[in-house]
Design a protein around this nucleic acid. Structure first.
Lengths: 378, 378
DNA sequence: CTGAAAGCGCTTACAG
DNA sequence: CTGAAAGCGCTTACAG
């Protein structure tokens, strides 16, 4: 910077102003300085700048994992907003581990982040203490609770699953099972289960302990759980899954066993992953605009940076997308296996002619929004 | 820091040493300093540290987009390695725009990144000039070329598609079409097309201009292209797609039209996305270990940081995964439509009884590696 | 509109 | 093993 100043025959103060408060510098000098900077390929040093101005222009974001379309999308939206506003994004992954999350928070604080976005509430209290202590604006994304002590931008997981439960109950299902991802250190999943139980209870349905399967959020666990569920004496007529991955696995296993979806069995997911509306049977699920969550979080944080407006919570809607995997149970009474011999766990013979059934993508009328913007890859 | 020093009754130099060169400080003083730091919730300020030490401990990574499983995975691997080594990750997306890529490079340079990972070569030369000028170690990821002027960690796109072409030709296909993503500002796609043409030429097959469809990397474009291709007078018996997304679209459209895959038509993809081995017909495609690319890049850069070892190139293999969407053409002569009336673009009647066919996921023997580590979401 | 100078929070020779 | 002090590259009152 000193060299630039020398070349342009001005002081370093003037060089600084040209790039930070150009209105305060005359045009002729501005030009001279810009030319000098260009000639020397000078790029201001952020460390010096941060130290002097007490502003780092660094924003932090911590998510559980990038191996998930929904979080990647949030980051995508956030990154765009930050980039537009001169912020760079420091990214951290907690891998669903609160302790690792705290580490990331500390590392980011040390790096001088001005603001921070975090997915969910599952961090040690110390993490939030540190943020408050330093006056770092932060926002929790993805989940939203009216009674949250933190500003949050997302949707109400509990209400969303209450809605799914209400819908399934309204269809006439009496016997319902669930396949969920792990609940530990995951406030969102806990809320989903609460909403689910609440909705079922309101409809006079109980979720029995043996009908709730909890495990890895993979298609394989979804499939395995479905096989176990359908091998029981009294089969459910509907299965509510904690997310789309689990639902995809469950569907494929169900079709494999020869069940007719949705007539024999209704299945729901959550997330509306890109693939699920392009596969037959198209999955009934809920959609959350994660790109928008990321954008809103970014905007709020940019505004809050440097002591601006405080961060405001925003509640987004989760939209139920009714598609082809749900319907009323076959008989009004509920076509449970109990109506049959009921004791035959091997009653898995295909009911259709297909030698091997499974989920199938279809050319169907689906929401085309995703394809409007030209996607390119890789 | 001054307060910590005062509380511990030492100089700031000693406080600094406790955290950076603990071996040089006596145990008793170390303890005093650590206690004081803890009591004051002190976290060293990275800007001051970076300014004084000339080391920022910030690593940069620029990818085209996070909306893609493969890049997200690379970042995931890289982030883990960086975190283990005390580096924080600054993430940028170029959206496949070289100019935006240069912006990101400049912003990151200003932030003081010590090292940088970039996907591909499509950046203005100035970007690389800046990096060399400042002696910032960098590495290109994903693509690999033996004759690249830059260190790179990835696979040979050209060789990979040469392999696909060779395989398809070896099956006996004579008439082959292709559906690809845009080639502009994408060296990897260019290389793929070269490899494809090379392989076809070696097998005496020409890729005619009308048989090459280039457009958005979406399922929809894949489907649309397939319909166009199969409406032509002389239909191909095989279609090579630039990636899995396009292939998924093509398959769904083909099944929809009643074609039997692979007997009527072989289709290949690239990427081995999580879903494609769980869908029927399972896609023949190629797999690249993107997590490993990210990890290797991270390791190389960590070692190169602060004037360590220079970054070394690494070539990874792309593995052909032969699955259910490829086979020899139905007849030895190649069952092109030319053998039929040939002039009927409406010859799209379903040949099977399925009212609506499509891709289907299946419970099948597939590579379970992905599921070994418990995945959790959301 | 411009400049001289203090200072942001650390690290690091240098001296002891 | 420890400390005094210079300095990293900027910004920002303050003065003119």
């Amino acid at each position: 910077m000193a060299e630039v100043a020398r070349l342009a025959q001005v002081s370093t103060a003037t060089v600084s102003r040209v790039f930070n408060e150009p209105a305060k510098v005359s045009d002729s000098i501005q030009q001279r300085v810009r030319e000098a900077a260009a000639a020397l390929h000078w790029i201001p040093n952020a460390a010096g700048r941060a130290l002097a101005s007490r502003r780092s222009h660094i924003a932090g974001a911590i998510i559980p994992t990038l191996d998930n379309e929904i979080f990647a999308r949030q980051i995508s939206g956030m990154q765009a907003v930050f980039a537009e506003n001169g912020f760079t994004l420091l990214l951290g992954c907690s891998n669903y581990d609160p302790a690792e999350g705290l580490n990331q928070v500390q590392a980011m604080l040390a790096q001088g982040i001005e603001v921070l976005a975090l997915v969910g509430e599952n961090y040690p209290p110390q993490a939030f203490d540190l943020l408050r202590q330093r006056g770092i604006p932060y926002v929790l994304t993805y989940g939203f609770r009216h009674d949250s002590p933190h500003p949050c931008i997302g949707f109400d997981n509990r209400a969303a699953f209450r809605q799914i439960a209400d819908y399934i109950v309204s269809l006439g299902h009496k016997r319902i099972a669930a396949i969920f991802q792990p609940v530990d250190a995951n406030d969102r999943v806990v809320a989903r289960l609460e909403g689910l139980r609440e909705g079922l209870a309101a409809g006079g349905v109980t979720l029995r302990a043996t009908d709730l399967h909890i495990g890895p959020s993979s298609m394989d666990f979804g499939a395995e759980s479905l096989r176990r569920i359908m091998a029981s004496k009294t089969r459910p007529t509907a299965i509510i899954c904690g997310n789309d991955n689990l639902a995809l696995g469950a569907i494929s296993a169900a079709l494999d066993l020869g069940f007719d979806i949705p007539n024999d069995l209704s299945i729901t997911g959550f997330d509306d992953l890109a693939i699920v509306s392009r596969i037959a049977p198209q999955l009934t699920t809920m959609r959350v605009d994660n790109l928008e969550i990321g954008r809103l979080a970014g905007q709020q944080l940019v505004q809050a940076a440097g002591g601006g407006v405080p961060v405001q919570s925003h509640e987004l809607r989760a939209d139920l997308r009714l598609r082809a995997t749900t319907s009323p149970p076959r008989s009004a009474a509920g076509a449970t296996a109990a109506a049959g011999d009921g004791n035959d766990a091997d009653d898995h013979k295909p009911r259709h002619q297909q030698p091997r059934a499974g989920i199938r993508t279809q050319r169907v009328e689906h929401d085309l929004q995703e394809d409007k913007k030209q996607r390119r890859a890789p």
